[in-house]
Each structure stands twice: as C-alpha cells, then as structure tokens.
C-alpha cells in the first residue's frame, strides 16, 4: 500500500532521514515508532507530498506521490497529533470545507462519518467549544471523507485522557477490521503502537533500525527461559556445558552451538524436574530503549 524507496531529507543541512525504505502492506495496522525527532513526521510529510525529499520517492497504491500527488492521495486520509480546524466554524462546516478538496462528498457520507466518530449531537456547534477528544474525533471524521483505503495517523492520541486514548484505539481497530482500511500509525508511545499494530518499523535519528513483527522484536531465540524445581542446582549443571551463559534468573544465553535439547538432557540426567522451556520474551520497553540507543544500527541486519 505504501512504499518508500531510499527516501532522504535534510533540513538546513541537518539530515532528518537517511535513505529510508519502508513497505506497508495493504489491510494492516502498521506502526512507525521512534523518539521525537526520529524522522516519523518527515516520512509522513513525504508520503503526503508536504515535504519534498532530497532523493527517493514515496508510492501510495503504486502511484508516486512526488510525480502524481493528486492521484496517489485520492484514497488517503490523514490526521495529525492535534488536528487543526477553523475554530469559528461548526464541525460540520469544517468537514464540508476539508472534504471539498478531495471530491464531491454526498451529505449521507458526511453524516455517516459523523456517526462513526459519535459526534452527532455537537457537530453543528463551533469547533472552539470542542474538547481535545472531540477535536481528535472530528479529525478522524475528516480523514474518512471521502471514504479512504489508507489513513495516516501522526501521534493521534497526544493530549488525550486515558478514556480518549482507549476510544481512539478502538476506533482505529474498528476502521481497520470493518472497512479494511490500511492504517499507518506514527507514535513515540511504545504501548500505543504495541496495542494497535501488527507490524512495526522503528526509526532512530532518521534511520530504520527495525522492521518486522512484534514477536520478532521481543523473542530472542538465543535466550531461553527454564522453569525448574531447583534453579540453583540446575544452574550449576548448565554452567558445565560449553557455550552457556546466564542472562538473568532462570534465563540462559546460548552461544557456540549450545542447543536446547542438550541442556534438557543434562538437566533430566541430573534428576531436575523441568516444567517448561521457552524462548525468553524480553520486556518490550527494554528492547526498544536498547535499540533506539544503539546509534542507528540496523537490528534487522
């Protein structure tokens, strides 16, 4: 659905993106994760044709945004961390004005979008009287007009209270599930991306340092967790095996050809009861922090 090919951008000589490649498959909720300043908004700006890349191009639905922006964005909606509206106009009028820049949108479609975001009772009030949560929902409504195949979301939960964040998350999931809309979700909030996205790309200082499924990120095949009756005795047995090191309580790091079946065999021979052996799942936050402080090294490599 989205493909970025070798996209680079610098602002006043300061690089914001270094040759970014990205593929977002159709129908997924894809996360773009990174600290503030990692390059997420620049990448999003390039996808929307708001930022001119120094090299490379962005394709949406196979159409180049840089060559044929209008056609590429025909079926694309977007909202930013704080969607901006004409505060002195009603929510309805704002929807009419913004959607008129895409296509002639029938009244019934506007009503449907308003209903999806549950703004019906206040839609004819001035936006100046809306809460932050209502503005965000109005932002989603405008992104749904006319009905898109792809929605780009830049930090859409910023400034929302926990209830608002939950509502927004459920709304995004519903749009993806019921309407098959592909979602690109940019955030610096790990938990948000984790709860929403099937796959994720992590940016750090303008470089992609990971691209894949969450499970690939958190599961380390070289790290095994044992659940045994007597860990101290088990550790002593395992320490005798070449290539075994310890990564924490009940966790073993396998190096130099050490294999799980050999470890299990030695423990059984020593009469230690084993309840479970599984790949250790690292704490996601820890993994993310490790990666983002790794100086931009590509951890997929």
């Amino acid at each position: 659905m989205i493909r970025l090919h070798n996209v680079a951008k610098a602002f006043k000589g300061k690089p914001a993106l270094h040759g970014l490649d990205l593929d977002v498959p159709r129908g997924e909720i894809f996360g773009l994760l990174g600290h503030n300043g990692a390059g997420k908004s620049t990448a999003l700006g390039i996808m929307l044709g708001q930022v001119h890349p120094d090299r490379g191009e962005a394709l949406i639905g196979g159409v180049s945004v840089q060559q044929e922006r209008a056609r590429a964005l025909e079926k694309t909606g977007a909202i930013f961390e704080q969607p901006r509206f004409y505060d002195y106009l009603s929510g309805w009028k704002n929807l009419e004005i913004f959607s008129s820049f895409s296509a002639e949108v029938p009244r019934a479609q506007v009503e449907e979008a308003v209903e999806i975001v549950a703004l019906g009772a206040r839609i004819h009030d001035k936006v100046a009287t809306y809460s932050q949560g209502m503005r965000q929902r109005l932002g989603v409504a405008q992104a749904l007009l006319p009905p898109p195949d792809l929605i780009l979301l830049d930090e859409p939960t910023n400034g929302l209270d926990p209830e608002g964040i939950h509502e927004m998350r459920e709304l995004i999931k519903r749009l993806n599930r019921e309407r098959g809309i592909t979602v690109l979700f940019c955030s610096h909030l790990l938990s948000e991306v984790e709860q929403l996205c099937d796959r994720v790309a992590i940016l750090n200082r303008g470089r992609k340092i990971f691209d894949g499924r969450w499970s690939e990120l958190t599961t380390d095949k070289q790290r095994v967790r044992f659940e045994v009756d007597e860990w101290e005795r088990a550790a002593a047995v395992l320490a005798e095996i070449p290539g075994v090191a310890f990564g924490g309580r009940a966790e073993v790091l396998l190096n130099d050809g050490a294999a799980v079946p050999d470890l299990v065999k030695r423990l059984v021979e020593a009469g230690i009861r084993i309840h479970a052996v599984e790949p250790a799942r690292r704490n996601l936050e820890q993994v993310y922090l490790e990666m983002s402080h790794s100086g931009g090294e590509d951890l997929n490599a």
Partner: peptide, 17 residues
C-alpha cells in the same frame, strides 16, 4: 494555525489552493 497542512493532506495541488 496548521489548517493549511490539513488541506494539503488532500489530493489537491498547491497551485489550486
């Protein structure tokens, strides 16, 4: 105000805006 960025998300050329 940021409203122009909202407009420029749309499939409309800058010249037309």
């Amino acid at each position: 105000d940021g409203t122009l960025r909202m407009t420029l998300c749309r499939p409309v050329s800058r010249v037309r805006v």
